[in-house]
């Protein structure tokens, strides 16, 4: 019997696993699907460690909790790219940038010339924009694989194809990290649909995530290796896990081409649809019930806020004061 059993090998489960292993706690991880990423919305994430940019739509506490992410990932995976993030808007939407610069703070204005210097692929974009130099990004799929490797090096392996329930397990503590699939056991979780795609083109080169603030369809484009770009993501109040709609595709691609016409000839190599688990305030948190801790509600911030939640969960496991402070689930 392990001290702690973790259900779910998405970003929540794996960050918790690493944090517990770092504290020399004996754990085991159960994942109902056959292989890493399958059935987990983490697989479709953008992988931006952008606490300040996210302030555009997220609460202040999301920004605060996200500030630990970069360091945590640097300590656990092989590749975190720290090139900052660039946020742009069309001339008519410039006030959206003003709003973000006031909220996000850790940024400075860049004009068209500076944009062309740091991101030559966007030299046609008539600035201004905002550069958030302290932000970083990672490849979520590679990061999850790296975490698995990190755990394997410490003699922890994931039990795939194990659809366990809370009742099945006799560990001292259970961390329920099943995301939306916990909604029967944890009230207040809703699904927020997201659609993303991966494009491939050699016509443009980007070295950092670029966001376009557009009142109708804001987008971000995150560079990946092999001339690939992750384009995301829609936010739709619906718990439908499939069906990439024509409207979403038109909106996302239209915004991508507004950013740079070079995306016009890109190849669409993957379409992804899933739902993000979220609480009503879109802020993640832990709940406890008997010997179970629910780690949930990561919404669109799995990689940004996973580390902060994992630290809180591990604190609760090792420290009875922290445990006692966790809110109890109804």
């Amino acid at each position: 019997m392990s001290e702690v059993a973790i259900i779910g090998a998405g970003v929540a489960g794996l960050t918790c696993a690493c944090e517990l292993v770092d504290r020399k706690i004996d754990i085991c991880i159960y994942e109902q699907t056959m292989r890493l990423g399958e059935g987990s919305c983490s697989w479709f994430a953008g992988g931006m460690l952008a606490p300040y940019c996210e302030r555009d739509t997220a609460e202040h506490e999301v920004m605060l909790s996200g500030m630990v992410a970069k360091k945590w990932w640097q300590e656990h995976i092989t590749e975190v790219t720290q090139n900052g993030s660039l946020v742009l808007a069309l001339p008519r939407d410039r006030n959206e940038l003003k709003r973000l610069s006031r909220l996000g703070k850790q940024c400075h204005w860049v004009d068209q010339q500076e944009i062309a210097t740091i991101e030559p692929g966007l030299s046609d974009f008539s600035g201004p924009g905002l550069l958030f130099p302290d932000e970083a990004h990672l490849n979520p799929r590679k990061a999850l694989q790296d975490l698995v490797h990190y755990l394997e090096m410490r003699n922890v392996s994931i039990q795939f194809n194990q659809a366990v329930t809370i009742e099945d397990l006799d560990a001292k503590v259970i961390l329920d990290c099943r995301g939306y699939n916990s909604h029967h056991d944890l009230g207040g979780i809703r699904g927020v649909k997201g659609e993303m795609m991966i494009l491939r083109t050699e016509d443009i080169s980007l070295s950092r995530p670029v966001r376009l603030l557009h009142p109708r369809q804001p987008i971000y484009i995150v560079p990946r290796i092999n001339h690939q770009y992750m384009l995301g993501a829609t936010l739709i109040e619906n718990n439908e896990r499939t069906r990439f709609s024509v409207r979403s595709m038109l909106d996302l691609l239209n915004s991508a081409v507004l950013l740079s016409s070079s995306f016009g000839e890109a190849e669409i190599i993957e379409l992804g649809v899933d739902i993000r688990p979220a609480f009503d305030d879109n802020v993640p948190r832990l709940y406890r019930k008997d010997n179970v801790i629910f780690v949930n509600g990561l919404y669109r911030h799995g990689f940004l806020l996973g580390p902060s939640l994992a630290i809180q969960a591990a604190d609760a496991v090792v420290n009875s004061d922290s445990w006692g402070k966790l809110p109890q689930c109804a």
Partner: peptide, 8 residues
Amino acid sequence: YPSPSKLA
């Protein structure tokens, strides 16, 4: 809205 609870 930033979240449904803010809307409420």
